[in-house]
């Protein structure tokens, strides 16, 4: 049973690391701001869930596991909110014709 949990947690950790890495590459290589927001927020949500669930499986029902659950809860509230605020701010600035060079590269 312990080995099964170990294997599941390794799969979660490595999958999360892969998602995070792909998000980082997307953040550097995508052509404009909104595609970059897409890459970064996918990596933020999916990568955070996978990595923290992997750690939680290692921690079990301890204080560390509860802290990890709290971190996951905060991240799941804050990172979509920050992504939405950023995209909203950028698109209103663009619509009002303020001088931000969003369409470049």
């Amino acid at each position: 049973m312990e080995q099964v949990i170990d294997i599941i947690s390794w799969i979660c950790l490595l999958g999360g690391a892969l998602v995070v890495l792909i998000g980082g590459i997307g953040l550097v290589r995508f052509p404009d701001l909104f595609t970059r927001i897409h890459a970064a927020s996918l990596a933020d949500s999916g990568g955070a869930i996978l990595v923290i669930v992997g750690c939680m499986l290692q921690a079990g029902l301890t204080l560390a596991g509860v802290k990890l659950a709290a971190i996951l809860l905060f991240l799941l509230f804050t990172s979509p909110t920050a992504g939405y605020a950023l995209a909203h701010s950028a698109i209103t600035a663009k619509d009002d014709g303020l001088d931000v060079d969003i369409e470049s590269d």
């Binding site: 701001l33 970059r36 933020d44 990595v51 971190i71 990172s79 950023l86 950028a90």
Partner: peptide
């Protein structure tokens, strides 16, 4: 690199989230 200020904010946000994950993994 980021051409606009929003790219820089996005990168800073991502850096912060990844720091949280890194600290969680590092603690184990």
């Amino acid at each position: 690199l980021g051409p606009s200020v929003y790219d820089r904010i996005l990168a800073a946000n991502m850096f912060g989230t990844k720091t949280v994950l890194f600290l969680a993994v590092l603690s184990f």
